[in-house]
Design a protein around this nucleic acid. Sequence first.
DNA 1: ATCGAGAGTTAGACTAGTCTAACTATATAT
DNA 2: ATATATAGTTAGACTAGTCTAACTCTCGAT
Lengths: 223, 223
Amino acid sequence: MDLSPIAEDYLKTIYHLEDENGRPVRTGDISTALDVTSPTVTSMLDSLDERELVDYTPYKGVELTDRGTETVLQLVRNHRLLETFLMEHLDYSWSAVHDEADCLEHYVSDEFTRRLATFLGEPVTDPHGDLIPDSDLKMPEKSPYTALTEYEPGDTVTVEQVPHRDPDVRDYLSRHRIGPGTQLVVDEVSSIDLVTVVPSTTETSVALPTHVARRIGARVVTK
Amino acid sequence: MDLSPIAEDYLKTIYHLEDENGRPVRTGDISTALDVTSPTVTSMLDSLDERELVDYTPYKGVELTDRGTETVLQLVRNHRLLETFLMEHLDYSWSAVHDEADCLEHYVSDEFTRRLATFLGEPVTDPHGDLIPDSDLKMPEKSPYTALTEYEPGDTVTVEQVPHRDPDVRDYLSRHRIGPGTQLVVDEVSSIDLVTVVPSTTETSVALPTHVARRIGARVVTK
DNA sequence: ATCGAGAGTTAGACTAGTCTAACTATATAT
DNA sequence: ATATATAGTTAGACTAGTCTAACTCTCGAT
Ligand SMILES: [Mn+2]
Ligand SMILES: [Mn+2]
Ligand SMILES: [Mn+2]
Ligand SMILES: [Mn+2]
C-alpha cells in the first residue's frame, strides 16, 4: 500500500465528517476542513477512489470503503493512544495533546502502538472520553454518555467527553474550565440554540451554542 | 525556517559523515549514505547552501554552518531521547530502537522532547552509549570509553558504546550477542584489519573488522 | 419546465524531490 | 605535462500535491 500522510489526512477527514454531519461528505466539506481548494480535493478523491480507499461519485459525494475505514481506524488508534500517553506520562493538558498526536499518528509503527498500548495498560478511552479501537481495530462498546443537550435545567452532571479537534471550540471550553471530569449544573436549555451551564469549580455561568453542547458527553450526578 | 524532513536528513547525514570519515564530505558520500543519485545531492546542497545551513563548494565538498549544526543537534537530541524511551519503557531491544527514532525525530515538537527528557530523568547517554545534547543543545562531557582496537589481547572489557546505524553492522553484533553491557575478552588484534573477541555470555569467538571494532567503545574490567 | 446561483470539475501551471543522460572538472598515472 | 578515469554538475523530465482560471453540473426558486 504505502499511503502518504497527506492521503491519510483526507481519509481521516472523511471519517470524521461522516460521523459529525451524518450526510454524504461533499468536496466542499473536505476543502473547508483541510483548508485546501476544491480542485485539490477533487484530484485527491480521484486518486483515493483509484486505490479503492473511498467510493467517490463526482458531483455527489464520497464515502470510505472497508479498506479506507480500516486505514482510518489504525490512525485513530495511534492518535488516541498517543494522546493518552502525552496526558498521563508527559503531563500535557487535555487541550494540548491533540495537535501533537495528530502529527505523530502518521509516523509511529504498528509495533510502537502495540507496545504503547501495553505500557498504558490497554486503555479503552482517551483523555477526551473517546473510544480507542483495540488491536484488531474493533471499537469497544459504545460509551453511555449523554449529550449535554439532553439534560434538563437543574441537572448536575460530570463531563466525560469533550469535542477538541476544532481549536476554537477547544480553547473556549478550556478557557472556561470545562473539560473531562468537570462537574457542572445545567442552567438553561434555550430554544435559540444555546445551553447555559455552571461549572462547580468556577460558579460562573458559561453559554454554549447547541452545536457544541451536543458534542459534550456527560454522566448524571443528581437530577 | 520550516525545514522538510528530507532536508533534515541531508543535514544529519553530513553531520555523521564529518564525524565518521574525518575528511571533507563529498557529494558521493551523501549519495551513498542516503541512496539517492549524485545530481539529487548536488541540487539539495545548492538549496541548503542558499539557506545558509551548509557551506558548499562545488567539486570540493560541504560542511555544516553553525545554523546547520544547531538543527542537527536538536534532531540528535530528539533521536536519542526517543531511543531511550523505546528501550526503557516500551521494551524494545537496543538493535530495534534506531529505525523508529530515525523517523519520529523529525516530527516530535521541542515541547515533546523537553517533557520526554523530564519523564526519563534527563538522561545523558542513550541505549547505545551515545551522548544526548542537553536542552541548550550542548553536548555533555565526552564519555571516557576506549575503542576496542586500543586494547591488548587478554584484556577483559565491558562494551559501553555500539555502532548501530548501519543495519548490517548492527545485526551482526546483535546476532553475536555483542551489545551495550556485554562483557568480553579481547582475543587477538591482528594486523590484517581484524579484532577477535570472546563474549563471556557465549564463550564463542567473534571476528570483527577493524572499521567495526574501532567504533565499539569499551571500559576495561581486568588487564 | 426553466434558469441561475453555487458547488464541483477540468485544464494548466508551479514546487520539491527525485531520476537519467550528457557534459565538465579534478586528480592520478605515466 | 598530458591523458584519462572518476567524481561531480547541468539539463531536462517526472510525480505528488497544491494553486488559479475557466467551464459544467445540480438543485431550488420561480
Ligand atoms: Mn484528538
Ligand atoms: Mn482524543
Ligand atoms: Mn540511533
Ligand atoms: Mn543511539
